[in-house]
Computed example of a mutant assay.
Amino acid sequence: MNDISIHPYSPGYQPDFKRLNIEWISRYFAVEPHDLEQLDHPDVHVLPNHGQIFFAKLDDAIVGCVAMVNTGTPEQGVSEFELAKMAVSPTAQGKGIGKKLCLVAIDYARQLGVKTIWLESNRILTPALTMYESVGFREVPSIPTPYARADIRMEMVL
Rank of each mutant, 00 (worst) to 15 (best):
V44I: 15
L39A: 03
P42S: 00
R19F: 13
A67V: 11
A148D: 15
P141W: 12
P90A: 07
A30R: 15
S134N: 08
G113Q: 06
E139A: 14
H50N: 15
D60Y: 10
Q38P: 04
E120S: 09
R19P: 04
M154W: 09
G136Q: 02
G98M: 07
N122H: 05
E120W: 11
M131Y: 00
D107Y: 04
A61C: 12
S26K: 03
A56F: 03
I117Y: 09
P33Y: 14
P90F: 11
I53F: 03
R153S: 04
H45T: 08
I22W: 05
E37H: 15
K100F: 08
A148R: 15
D107E: 15
P141Q: 12
P127Q: 00
G96E: 01
A67F: 04
I152H: 11
G94H: 09
A67C: 11
K57S: 07
K115C: 05
A67K: 06
S26P: 10
I25C: 12
A109V: 09
R19E: 11
Y108D: 04
Q111I: 06
E80V: 13
I62P: 09
A56D: 00
K85G: 11
L125A: 03
P15D: 05
A67D: 09
A67Q: 00
E75G: 03
H50P: 11
R138C: 15
V104S: 10
F54A: 05
M68Y: 06
H45L: 03
E80Q: 14
V135Y: 04
F137K: 04
H41I: 12
P144A: 07
V66Q: 04
V69D: 06
G94R: 07
F137M: 06
I53H: 04
T130D: 12
L47E: 08
A148Y: 13
Q93L: 07
W118Y: 15
V44T: 14
L58M: 12
T130A: 12
D151P: 10
A61T: 14
G51I: 00
A128G: 01
V44G: 08
Q111M: 13
E155R: 10
D40I: 12
V69L: 06
I53S: 02
K85Q: 12
A56L: 06
T73M: 14
G94D: 03
T130C: 07
H45I: 05
F17L: 09
A148T: 15
